[in-house]
Nucleic acid binder design. Structure first.
Lengths: 229, 229
DNA sequence: TTCTTGTCACCTAGGTGTTAATAT
DNA sequence: ATATTAACACCTAGGTGACAAGAA
């Protein structure tokens, strides 16, 4: 069995509509996909990998602005039409693969080397996604069968885990300011953009309670009122 | 077979008497021990590891200063007596171990995660060495025998490689100024201490030709004349 | 108008020798 | 006198969103 790490943070993003930046060079995910694994055979070899499947067959576009709103980005999504042609269906192997069950289970497994790109011709092995499309990350555990004719048992030698709270929209620039603010507040690498007390996060953070309102209110692209609650 | 990378640099250090810093927290080696490997079975699994053996049974001390010399460190070594009690004989497995021969051979194998410490009680898995003692790094390739009774064949399933030019003295602070200057000139992380043209290295560097004389001459702890040529 | 790209300041994370203080 | 330690400034290396310019 598998347990998603930082589930509270994922939930908070998911509630706002998670967005992940894609760039030509490749961009990491935040939050990072991390899991704890239980119930492996400690002595057996396993490969761990991730892939990304479209949530639907749609292309999205930014929602309209309420009258008098000057912000560049709203927080609602409209369907812009049918999905663009599917990207190459790449897979990201965890760089420690293959390794023994004991190794995988003894600490959190982190996919922080995984990068997302919108470059269809990428040759860095990054995951290729269409911007303005929604994706569901999937996590796969493959048992490395020591038998000679292991191909025959491929069906039964892997298991897939899906956490719906990790769904996201791929974007080249953030569309929802509240996503931006939550990223700034929770990603250590974005600390330079925080204008609230640096000590407020994550020490004093309670996931339910109007998260990051101060950061939101003092945003550099202020919006008179939240587009949707 | 195994080929030492950066052999020219190792030779240059070895000629001066290589020193490696040891600290309580652990210090990387510079130059880094890196090799190219040939002739593995591409499909077989191998473990790669290093250890360090004493070159002799001696403890060293800094040599005397010539009259009128105000520098703190000379560049000659005197025998101070018999070696201190041997440190725990630890081993450093390359973190990618185990991996297929094909994987090891397709690029340079770098031991840049290896750290040296003088803390006898270290529990970070670092290599423990006695300061002021001389050591010979060794590189071992272990074939992972798939046979059930692989223990029986342990003798024949590994091979050891020794490069004498990688010998060094473990120190807590550099003893030879010319070693310090060569480290500053060749280690990118010490760039902040260079006072010569940053472009001179390594672009214009010819290993034989009075290396780094300008840096040496402008050293912050100037010595009237080199202690020994 | 909407989306994408490239550059940038500002971070995290951690590897350098220096230096002054301390230990032996 | 010699050896070790810890704090420090200054680097490498690379992950952030902001922003202005460009593309569709």
């Amino acid at each position: 069995s598998v347990q998603l790490e930082m589930k509270a943070l994922w939930d908070e993003f998911n509630q706002l509509g998670t967005e992940m930046i894609v760039t030509k060079a490749g961009r990491r995910m935040f939050p990072t996909f991390q899991v704890k694994i239980f119930g492996m055979d400690p002595m057996a070899d396993y490969m761990l990998l991730m892939d990304f499947v479209p949530v639907d067959d749609k292309r999205y576009r930014q929602g309209p602005f309420p009258p008098g709103r000057y912000a560049f980005h709203s927080s609602s999504w409209l369907v812009a039409g049918k999905a663009d042609p599917a990207t190459p269906g790449r897979v990201h192997y965890h760089p420690d693969s293959p390794a023994k069950g004991a190794q995988w289970m003894k600490q959190i497994v982190s996919f922080d080397k995984l990068k997302l790109t919108n470059n269809l011709l990428d040759d860095n092995g990054h995951i290729i996604l269409n911007s303005m499309h929604r994706y569901q990350p999937r996590f796969h555990v493959v048992y490395v069968d020591p038998r000679k004719d292991s191909e025959k048992y491929a069906e039964e030698n892997f298991k897939t885990f899906v956490f719906e709270e990790t769904r996201f929209t791929a974007v080249t620039a953030y569309q929802n300011h509240r996503i931006t603010q939550l990223k700034i507040a929770s990603n250590p690498f974005a600390k330079g953009f925080r204008d609230c007390d640096p000590e407020d996060w994550p020490r004093n953070h309670r996931p339910g309670a109007l998260p990051l309102m101060s950061a939101f209110a003092r945003s550099r692209n202020p919006v008179s009122s939240p587009a949707h609650q």
